[in-house]
């Protein structure tokens, strides 16, 4: 039973890591790429580490790694996307909304202005 749960968690994590690779190859601009890759790899690492916990029977360093990945992956992606925007890397032509541009150049998006 434990082995079946471990196999399912392992396959789920691998599936999401493969989805992240697909998004990295196919998405049109940097912002959508960072969006796809960060969320999918975070969930993929959570699945693989859950499989490791199920195999070894008790949580050890897996919980620490999982907490660190969940905390730092979105922060890093946010910082890299924000500095890419402030550096003038363009969005794709398909995008329909630019909230940072409406909020001014200082990057402080204020939703109360309009």
């Amino acid at each position: 039973m434990i082995e079946i749960i471990a196999c399912l968690a392992l396959l789920t994590g691998t599936f999401f890591i493969a989805i992240a690779a697909l998004g990295l190859a196919r998405m049109p601009d940097i912002y959508s790429r960072a969006h796809a890759v960060t969320k999918a790899t975070t969930l993929g690492m959570a699945g693989v580490l859950s499989a490791s916990i199920a195999v070894f029977g008790s949580p050890g360093a897996e919980l620490l790694v999982m907490l660190f990945v969940v905390l730092t992956n979105p922060v890093g992606a946010h910082m890299i996307a924000r500095s890419a925007y402030l550096n003038g890397i363009p969005m794709t032509e398909m995008s329909i909304l630019d909230e940072m541009k409406r909020a001014g150049e200082h990057g402080s998006v204020d939703h109360d202005t309009d």
Binding site: A21, L24, R33, A34, V37, T41, G44, N73
Partner: peptide
């Protein structure tokens, strides 16, 4: 950088 992040996670 995003690709290197994905590589590290893989």
């Amino acid at each position: 950088v995003v690709a290197a992040d994905a590589l590290t996670t893989g």
